[in-house]
Design a protein around this nucleic acid. Structure first.
Length: 562
RNA sequence: GCGCGAGUAGCUCAGCUGGAUAGAGCGUCGGCCUCCGGAGCCGAAGGUCGUGGGUUCGAAUCCCGCCUCGCGCACCA
């Protein structure tokens, strides 16, 4: 049991003796103002209503009833409207660091997920062009959310869904052909410069396949396009392969790996799309109108019903959300207790539809399945101006542009430092700066600095285990603050995981780094009295561990020197 | 028009699921270099939490109305 749980248990015991209900669960928290104490509880205020007494009176009674020894506090006092503030003996507070040193990179991990399977789907870009900044934000978010879930005991599968069916791929194919034969581009073609590279690649591959020359392939593309289905298919195949390869390269450079690449086209091969339509018709939530088959999604909270299968005159194909439903059924069937989809907010209209489809199947999928993490758009700024033009993509900035220019760590941090629902302004100039103005630098510097202490002092960090440390030596205000923040890490990471909000980790890291710098600047570790140096080395190592753990969750490196 | 998101310091944003005097970074102003790295640190100024009501011991946080901005409202994907 940790210090907080011990304190909470003691408060509950005292509250029960005053007649508190059996399920009473007071909040134990750190007061915002450190002069108030190390911990505080709102127990008296929360009991005001059930007990019918004034919070201040209850607070005094609680303090009298509290077993301070069992609670592990040196002092308890009533303040403000009825808060009870607790102060720990200096040594008792810092003794918590022993756990940090003992657990190392395990510190903060929990088993909340109990090994259950969760699927995190993100990026899922169509293979029609390079990854742009929005995909980058999604890659950073999805990867960090996955890490948070791993950290809290879930078995995570990172998944990338390829929309390799549908009209966009035909558009890509036709664009490549247009580029290959230098014909004019229409409104329904992709205009990015990258299409030229795709065309070059496709021509070379087709020339190799057919044992002929590039020139001959160009000629065929110009004259035999309409008649040669195999040629059209070859262009499509090679174009998709090329762009998938490019996307993989970008993601690798960004340090993101996927466990599963799921192809939309495979759903058709397995008859899952048609199967989903007939299954939905069987459950009675479908109906026919105007020659099309509709799903009554309004039953499940949608504002209008949706077409599942187009009428004959519109081609008779299923609409987009049907394969999406079929796809999510596979997640359920593959045994994922939770499915989390990270998407741009411009896709939020599909949320209701997909969930409605899953519910309408009536196969026991929970109502909130899948969970969605939606994020707003990214604006890239340079020299105070919005950047839109990329050499590669033409009309938007790519992930590769950003990673090339500012580095992977900075890109990750900048994408993760805001909550997803906030629009994000990516300041390229700031991200490039190698100074304290740049938050990622500031945090990494704190880590490097702590490593520097061991390096300069020629202290073997592995030998600092916390054994024999007189924790009461860590009595400076800056030390107490830092200690408390480090001990907050497990609760912080749990909260971030539960809320699927990695930005909390980013914000917390910045605050922790600030406290490290402050402490470092004001107090020396080396060259003090042996007991003091020993205690401070323990603190330095604990801080280094926790910073490294936090950076690891975000997928950012923790350099030992800068 | 309907739905979703956002509106907090000059700027960019946090605010831990309702708590104490609303915070951080940057910017501005004023200080600090014999130092385990100045790639740093300290201090100050700066707020009607968009707005008007409501709920209660207590609201930036929950509810309702209104305003502004973004996104979405296909037999597109």
């Amino acid at each position: 049991m940790n210090a907080t749980d011990r304190l909470r248990a003691a408060v509950v015991t005292a509250a029960r003796s005053l007649g508190a209900p059996a399920d009473f669960a007071p909040v134990i928290e750190r007061p915002r103002d450190p002069t108030h104490g190390d911990w505080a509880t709102n127990a008296a205020m929360a009991l005001a209503r059930p007990l019918g007494k004034k919070p201040a009176d209850i607070a005094r009674a609680l303090v009298d009833a509290l077993d301070k020894g069992a609670a592990g506090v040196a002092d308890a006092s009533v303040a403000g409207p009825g808060f009870i503030n607790f102060r720990l003996a200096a040594g008792d507070l810092a003794a918590g660091l022993a756990t940090v040193l003992q657990l190392g990179e395990q510190y903060g991990r929990t088993q909340d997920g109990a090994g259950r399977a969760v699927n995190v789907e993100f990026v899922s870009a169509n293979p029609t062009g390079p990854l742009h900044v929005g995909h980058g934000r999604q890659a950073a978010l999805g990867d960090a959310i996955s890490s948070l879930l791993v950290y809290t005991g879930w078995t995570v599968t990172r998944e990338f869904y390829y929309n390799d069916g549908g009209g966009q791929i035909e558009r890509l194919r036709d664009s490549v052909r247009a580029r290959a034969i230098d014909s004019a581009l229409g409104d329904d073609h992709y205009h990015g410069e990258y299409v030229r590279d795709v065309a070059t690649y496709a021509i070379e591959r087709i020339a190799a396949d057919r044992a002929t020359t590039s020139g001959a392939v160009r000629q065929m593309l110009a004259t035999e396009w309409e008649d040669d289905a195999a040629l059209r298919d070859a262009v499509r195949r090679h174009a998709v392969a090329y762009l998938r390869g490019e996307q993989d390269t970008d993601l690798k450079a960004f340090g993101v790996r996927f466990d599963v690449y799921y192809l939309e086209s495979s759903l058709y091969g397995e008859q899952r799309v048609d199967g989903t339509i007939s299954a939905l018709m069987k459950t009675g939530h479908a109906f026919e109108q105007d020659g099309a088959i509709w799903l009554r999604t309004t039953t499940f909270g949608d504002d209008k019903d949706r077409v599942m299968k187009r009428s004959a005159e519109k081609g008779g194909e299923p609409t987009y959300f049907v394969p999406d439903v079929a796809y999510h059924v596979t997640k359920w069937e593959r045994g994922f207790a939770r499915a989390i989809d990270v998407q741009g907010a411009d896709h939020h209209s599909t949320v209701t539809r997909v969930r409605a489809g899953l519910q309408a199947l009536e196969i026991g999928i929970p109502k909130g399945y899948p969970e969605y993490v939606l994020h707003q758009m990214v604006t890239v700024m340079r020299a105070g101006e919005e950047m839109k033009i990329s050499k590669r993509a033409g009309s938007y900035v790519t992930v590769r542009d950003l990673v090339d220019e500012v580095g992977r760590d900075a890109v990750r941090y900048f994408f993760l430092m805001r909550k997803g629902e906030s629009q994000l302004v990516f300041d390229v100039d700031l991200a490039r700066k190698q100074s304290d103005e740049n938050p990622v630098y500031y945090i990494q510097m704190a880590h490097a600095r702590l490593c520097g202490i061991f390096r300069v002092g020629e202290v073997d960090a592995a030998a600092v285990t916390g054994a024999g440390v007189d924790w009461a030596r860590l009595s400076e205000p800056e030390e107490r603050e830092l200690v408390k923040t480090l001990l907050d890490w497990p609760a912080l990471v749990k909260g971030a995981a539960d809320a699927l909000e990695p930005h909390r980790v980013a914000t917390w890291l910045l605050e922790t780094a600030r406290l490290v710098h402050l402490w470092y600047h004001k107090h020396h570790v080396l060259g003090e009295a042996p007991e003091v140096t020993q205690a401070r080395l323990a603190l330095a190592k604990a801080a280094r561990i926790v910073l490294a753990n936090g950076l690891a969750v975000l997928g950012i490196s923790a350099p030992e020197r800068m």
